[in-house]
Every structure is written in structure tokens, then in C-alpha cells.
């Protein structure tokens, strides 16, 4: 796994921006080469909007990138019983517990929710969705009042790629969790 695979959320945005821009540019190309009333309407009504849409999406990605970098490591507190993230959501952060305990719960259709694990201080969660490029595989809720340190995927990816000890630790924890899930 390369560190860039961790950014799948933004990747989709960039693809949409690229495709929108391509559509707009093609209408511009046709309009410049063959100016007729139809190509004029196509370019002025639709093509321009596509080009602007591409720019807006790209700028959105850049702004999100900058914000994520600015807010890469943030302390977050959760009240008892509060849901930290839900199963199936797209994840962008890893959580390290400083104080308190959380419950990792697997929800399946027509079945009672199953508690997979209870995690405490110095343990972390939320890394699987980032590393496996998948939605959150379980819901995590605060079992007691919890204080966490959250790391954005941008910096987590860099740490994961450049700190071998962290990588080894995360991989071993993930292996254990995968076995527990089965």
C-alpha cells in the first residue's frame, strides 16, 4: 500500500473536476473550430458551467487539503454514549485515546449489535478505514467520557510511511483486529 492510496476521498473529487473540465474544454474546442448557433449555445450555456464546476471542485479539494493540514492533530472530547463514528462512514482520522474508554461495535442487518472490543488509554482506533481504503468497518462509541487526540489522514499517512516502528505496530494491531472480526 502506498501512502497516496489513503486519500481516496479527494481522489474522487479530482476525477470529477477533471471530467467536468474536459467536457467544458471539448465544447470550447468545438465552438472555436466550428462557430454555429448550436455550438455557441452548447459552449455558452453548458461548457462554461462545466469549466467553472471543475475549477470550483479543484479549489474545494485544495482548501480541504490546507484545512486538513492546519488541523492535522486536534484534541477531541466525547461524552459518555456519544457516537465517535459510524460503521459505513468514510473516515479521514485516526483517534488515539488519552483518557476514558470506547466500545467498538459491529452492526449487522437483522442482528443485535456485537461489541468487538473495548479500548482504553494509549490505544488507537480508526486506522483500518484509512489503510484499507474502505469505509469504517465498525461503529465506535464513548463508553465513558473520552478525551482523544485525532490525527488527520494526511499526517497519519506520512507517519505510517516514514516511521517503521509505527508501521509495524499498526500492522500487528490491524492483524489482530482482522482476526477478531472473523
Amino acid at each position: 500500500m502506498t501512502e497516496t492510496e489513503l486519500f481516496y476521498g479527494h481522489k474522487r473529487h479530482l476525477i470529477v473536476a477533471g471530467v467536468a473540465s474536459l467536457g467544458g474544454l471539448l465544447t470550447a474546442l468545438i465552438y472555436v473550430l466550428y462557430s454555429t448557433p448550436y455550438t455557441m449555445v452548447l459552449f455558452l450555456l453548458i461548457g462554461q458551467l462545466f469549466i467553472l464546476l471543475g475549477i470550483v471542485i479543484y479549489v474545494y479539494v485544495i482548501v480541504r487539503d490546507i484545512r486538513a493540514n492546519l488541523e492535522s492533530v486536534v484534541e477531541k472530547r466525547f461524552k459518555q454514549g456519544e457516537i465517535i463514528f459510524r460503521q459505513g462512514e468514510i473516515g479521514d482520522r485516526v483517534y488515539v485515546i488519552i483518557e476514558g474508554e470506547v466500545e467498538v461495535v459491529r452492526e449487522e442487518r437483522d442482528k443485535k449489535a456485537m461489541v468487538l472490543a473495548r479500548l482504553g488509554p494509549e490505544e488507537y482506533f480508526g486506522e483500518m478505514a484509512l489503510l484499507r481504503n474502505t469505509p469504517r468497518s465498525a461503529t465506535v462509541r464513548a463508553f465513558t467520557e473520552v478525551r482523544t487526540l485525532t490525527i488527520h489522514q494526511t499526517h497519519f499517512a506520512e507517519l505510517f510511511a516514514h516511521v517503521p516502528a509505527l508501521r509495524k505496530s499498526v500492522e500487528s494491531v490491524m492483524g489482530g483486529r482482522s482476526r477478531a472480526e472473523r
Binding site: A17, G18, S21, G24, L25, A28, I51, I55, Y58, V59
Partner: peptide, 8 residues
């Protein structure tokens, strides 16, 4: 960036 924002 060049293809989507700068040139268009």
C-alpha cells in the same frame, strides 16, 4: 491545477 484552473 494547470489543466483545470490555469489554462481554462
Amino acid at each position: 491545477f494547470v489543466g483545470i484552473c490555469v489554462l481554462p
